[in-house]
Amino acid sequence: MQTTRRNLFKLGALAAASTALPSLAMAAGEATVERAAKPLRILILGGTGFTGPFQVRYALARGHKVTLFNRGRSPSPEWDDEVEQLHGDRNTGDLKALEGREWDVCIDNPTSLPFWVRDAGRVLKGRVGHYLFVSTISVYADGSRPGITEDAPLAPYGGRDAMAETRETLIADMGNLYGPLKALSEAEARKQFGANTTIVRPGYIVGPRDQTDRFTYWPHRIAQGGDILVPGDGTDPVQIIDGRDLGEWMIRLAENGTTGTFNACGPDYTLTTDAMVHGCHAVTGGPASFTHVPADFLESQEVGFPIWVSRRHPQFGGYGAVSNARAIEAGLTFRPLATTVADLLEWFRSLPPERQARLEAGPSREQEARILQAWKARAGG
């Protein structure tokens, strides 16, 4: 059971959140990108989704040559003639466009299936010097305790043949297959590319271009004002990473030839739920109040709140406090929360009105109001 707290946040909580955030003036600027000491030939598998475009922009700014390989269903005219585009379909094993080519680095963004890695290895083995695979913290067998390190046991696969799993079977049983298949994809990457493999395990990736709306829910809802439901008692840890920080760091890993396994979670301090919502409010402004609702009561309402996980959850309580020490030592840096929130809102508000009205995550305003009313009635508030 978590401590119940029905009153609005104390001024001390707001002050604590503010100290964790640089000023908005500092957050507004972007640092000048310097050219890399040695230009690389970089192959990006995918590259047009969420983080891929950030990798491409940063790589180009650093002076690298970039090739994208994907199905060609999400064109990126912003690249003009700066990026080579190769098309194929990893679902069907069509990698002909990659045959006979060589690159210094391959970044594999979209893979969740081991046979995708196997097939890529058959074509690229010996033809790329460094393979970087984007995995997930969902590979861990036990997410209940904080401080999960890269050496923790991985989720076992319970199916018959991992190489026979397809996009369709994964989607049909995402809850049981996603983590184990990612773990087996990591193992296949090491099998195919050996010591030249880098495994990057992000948690929640947020910021501009995020179509999941998992973090977007919070600044969007807080900007609307009114009485806002905050799950838990405000002290649960939250971990997020801006997609730009993740994408740019991966290019730097490639430049440095850094191998190994890394939890790509942020920030580099303990971000609580209180600090997150007040950090969003510091950007959005406007009248807003916040009401905490205990985790056990929310469970009875059967409505989920994105990003937040109770630290007392028996299965996932550690996912808000995964160890990122190894990644930080390898050069992972983080934008201020204020920058992520401001840029995310600017991007989200540029979307069509009908898209803004239909968030992919979080409760509706009606659901939130119903839960708040039920909680206040129970608590006598």
Rank of each mutant, 00 (worst) to 15 (best):
L253H: 07
A288H: 03
P267T: 03
Q85M: 14
T272L: 07
F69P: 02
T273I: 13
V283P: 12
P267V: 09
P267Y: 04
G129N: 12
E302D: 14
A288S: 09
T235V: 07
G179Q: 10
D233A: 11
P110H: 01
S323Y: 08
G72K: 03
R209M: 07
G285E: 13
A187F: 00
I137P: 10
S350M: 04
T48C: 09
E168I: 11
D161A: 12
Y157V: 09
E255N: 01
Y204A: 11
K376M: 10
S112V: 14
R190D: 00
Y157W: 11
P267H: 05
T169G: 00
G304W: 04
G72C: 09
A275D: 15
P314W: 07
M26I: 09
C106G: 04
P156M: 06
A288D: 02
H220Q: 12
S135R: 09
A155K: 07
G88E: 01
V230I: 15
L68C: 11
P231M: 04
T258L: 13
F69G: 02
N91D: 14
K182C: 06
N91M: 12
R209F: 09
D245F: 02
R365Y: 04
A37W: 00
A254V: 06
S18P: 00
I251G: 04
L60V: 11
I42W: 02
D89H: 00
R244T: 06
G362L: 01
A187C: 05
L14Q: 07
S323M: 10
E186N: 01
V123P: 00
L271Q: 02
G72P: 10
W308L: 06
R326N: 11
G247Y: 01
Y140S: 05
T92N: 00
L45S: 00
S185H: 05
S135D: 03
I371R: 04
V230W: 04
A275E: 14
R62P: 07
A325C: 07
R221F: 04
H130V: 08
R221E: 05
F133R: 07
D210W: 07
I148T: 05
T291Q: 13
M163N: 08
Q301C: 13
M163W: 14
R71Y: 10
Q224L: 12
D213L: 00
P306E: 03
T149Y: 04
I148E: 05
F215Y: 09
E168S: 03
G121S: 02
G29C: 15
S350R: 05
S23C: 02
A15L: 14
A379Q: 10
V277D: 06
R167T: 10
I240S: 05
T32I: 11
R311W: 10
N256Q: 15
I107T: 03
A361F: 12
R122G: 07
K38Y: 09
L43D: 00
E354H: 15
I107A: 03
V105Q: 12
A374E: 11
Q2I: 11
G381C: 13
V322W: 12
E150S: 11
L60K: 09
P53R: 08
E102R: 12
A61C: 06
A61D: 04
D108G: 01
P180V: 13
